[in-house]
């Protein structure tokens, strides 16, 4: 039998609107890292040893010295590592660096990832996102989990006019519909 071929939740969706672009990001690996209670220091030192940084507090993100991974602080005691997908299993890559200092769970296939970018991206997101995305309130690098059109979404600002949106894989078509409708409704 041939090896199994992967497929992305939104088949590599991409569409341009006036000063606005919606693109599916398909090449990301995502690993959640939980810090064992009472051994937070061990994880912290493993992270700083391996990546040269401290894990971010909830709501913000930080890039490893080498540029990858980017760690997103999502909840107390837990963050996501975000990096480009490679052949090796995502958890193995993290475990190789951090050994057993944390608890790791592969989340790479759990999410559909959209990048919404362009100077009108905030205007479009205003229609579905309850958070204040003003650049002084939700700064570049900020991250939050919230709800849009009845769907849980992780929103990460990766640029002045660029956001990554992560939503559950199974409902990805509904989520895409919500984002595309926002883009259409402001045109």
């Amino acid at each position: 039998m041939p090896r199994l071929a992967p497929s992305s939740p939104l088949n590599g969706f991409r569409q341009e609107f006036d000063r606005l672009e919606i693109t599916e990001i398909t090449d990301l690996a995502l690993v959640s890292i939980a810090s064992p209670q009472g051994r937070e220091a061990e994880l912290a030192s493993a992270v700083s040893g391996a990546y040269g940084i401290a894990l971010p507090p909830v709501g913000s993100s930080v890039e490893a010295d080498a540029g990858e991974p980017r760690f997103l602080g999502l909840q107390p005691g837990q963050c996501f590592a975000l990096f480009e997908r490679q052949d090796e299993g995502p958890v193995d890559i993290i475990a190789r660096k951090l050994s057993d200092a944390g608890y790791y769970t592969d989340q790479s296939d759990s999410w559909a990832v959209l990048r919404v970018s362009g100077t009108r991206c905030r205007e479009a997101l205003e229609r579905i996102c309850p958070l204040d995305l003003h650049p002084q309130t939700f700064v570049t690098g900020a991250v939050a989990r919230t709800v849009m059109e009845h769907l849980g979404v992780i929103i990460f600002r990766d640029g002045e006019d660029s956001f990554l949106l992560l939503s559950a894989r199974s409902s990805a078509p509904s989520f895409l519909h919500a984002v595309v409708t926002s883009a259409k409704n402001i045109q």
């Binding site: 959640s32 939980a34 064992p36 209670q37 009472g38 005691g77 837990q78 608890y103 769970t105 592969d106 989340q107 790479s108 296939d109 759990s110 999410w111 559950a168 894989r169 199974s170």
Partner: peptide
């Protein structure tokens, strides 16, 4: 709160 246990949903992963 003193137990060392962590939860994360994996419904969508598999």
């Amino acid at each position: 709160p003193g137990l060392d246990v962590h939860l994360i949903s994996a419904t969508e992963q598999w």
